[in-house]
Amino acid sequence: MDLTAIFQAAFALVVGLDPAFLAIVSLSLRVTLSAVLIAGLIGLPLGAALALARFRGRSVVIVILNALMGLPPVVAGLIVFLMLSRSGPLGSLGLLFTPTAMIVAQVLLVLPIVIALTRQTVEDLWAEYRDHLRSVGLEGMRAIPTLLFDGRFALATALLAGFGRASAEVGAVLIVGGNIAGYTRTMTTTITLETSKGDLPLALGLGLVLITLTLAINAVAFGASRIGARYAG
């Protein structure tokens, strides 16, 4: 196996526009972006609330959330698997081995990152804005929309971190998705499969495509936030 073979494989995948390959790429993006979107919808307000709330055991919650950022994907996958299995508590939903199950597992992975980083960002911003916001009557949870909006560029980075974790992981989606051809097969599970079939150039070629996609998404987000930051100061 040599580098040329890898690049050829990657090139053939992209240029060939093989429908199966495109389906895999679009499923990967769909699952990961959905997970990031859902984690954002839940995690941003929750992280902000945690930043502003004062209650007993708050530091314990923060430590746990920070630790959960390192939750092994396989464990997240296993938890979702046991919940969604027909013999599990949510079995009647029939969601195991579906893209939805994969999204749920990835939300579990991304959520702690979004909450923890949002809490940090919002807490720092609150320290700066506190006097003014309280002065104009935005106390407690009423300050959240302002803080989230003004922290938007830092928070975009938090979402990107979540996106990175979700798009790179294979353990959770493999367990709950089942790597079913044409249905729950993502880029990372395909890479695993091709590796196990010994087709290393194809596996690495796919890896190259994945890295390129991730790079592109990060570049666009970075550019957007730079331009935005220039307008927002």
Binding site: S26, L29, R30, V31, T32, L33, S34, V36, L37, G40, S92, L93, G94, L95, T98, P99, T100, I103, R152, A156, Y183
Partner: peptide, 26 residues
């Protein structure tokens, strides 16, 4: 912000994931 995620991701998901609880047919 919303469109970047929702446009590409969520809209498709809702159509492609099994909606029914008892008969998970895509």
């Amino acid at each position: 912000f919303a469109a970047a995620f929702a446009g590409s991701a969520f809209a498709q998901t809702t159509t492609a994931t099994p909606p029914a609880a008892t008969a998970p047919a895509a």
